[in-house]
Amino acid sequence: MMHGQFGPPPRPARKRWAIALVIAGAVLGAALASAAVFFGYQAHAARDTGRENTIKVVGSMTLTSSKGWDISGGKCTGSGGYSDIHQGTSVVLKTSSGKVIGVTQLEGGTVSGTGCAFIWVMDKVPDGDAFYTVEVGHRGALSYPRADLTGVLSATLGN
């Protein structure tokens, strides 16, 4: 079969547009997939490097005044001028710059020697400051060096 002296007849314009559209779609799809993988990896890497080291901080508040606590139902609680010290009293932990990094509550009081002791625990506290402050209720902040956070932070209130 003969097509003329210059080769096969030209393709219809419609087919050329369809082929160009398919190629452009494939290129665009590959570019979008590559971008999704790249940005997904970047977000994952940012999450991994942004993780802070955390520590568990444990503390106690002991009422030492013999007239500052009562026993009821096997538990002790603050009384008189110390009635604000009881199970549920807030404990706030801050960095040396004043940023709050942990909040918890006193657990139920137990008789300990000649006092009434309350324990508190904070999990996953961001680590990295040289000094931290702890405030139990409205009793004022106590400052502790970072090294002390590996043990029990003990505070007393009373005589």
Rank of each mutant, 00 (worst) to 15 (best):
L142S: 11
A147H: 10
A43L: 04
Y144I: 02
A20K: 10
G102F: 04
V152R: 04
S66W: 08
P8Y: 02
D129N: 13
V100T: 15
F38H: 14
R146W: 02
S65H: 11
S143P: 00
K67W: 13
R146N: 12
K94A: 12
I101P: 04
Q5C: 02
T62V: 10
G7Q: 06
H44E: 13
F131P: 00
I23R: 05
W17P: 00
T89W: 02
W120R: 01
W17F: 13
G158T: 06
Q5A: 15
Q5V: 12
D123C: 07
V58Q: 10
A20M: 13
Q5Y: 08
A45C: 02
I23G: 09
N53W: 00
P10Y: 01
F6N: 15
G73I: 05
R51E: 14
M122H: 03
R14Q: 15
F6V: 09
L142N: 11
P8H: 13
V91I: 10
I85L: 11
L28Q: 06
Q5H: 15
F118H: 07
Y82L: 09
Y144M: 07
N159L: 07
G59T: 03
R139E: 08
I23Q: 06
F38W: 15
D127M: 02
Q42I: 01
F38Q: 14
S65E: 11
V152Q: 09
I19P: 06
G29T: 09
L32N: 10
V121A: 08
L142Y: 08
A117C: 09
K99M: 07
Q87H: 07
G68H: 01
A43G: 05
L93P: 02
S34H: 09
A45N: 05
T62F: 07
S65I: 02
S112N: 12
G73K: 09
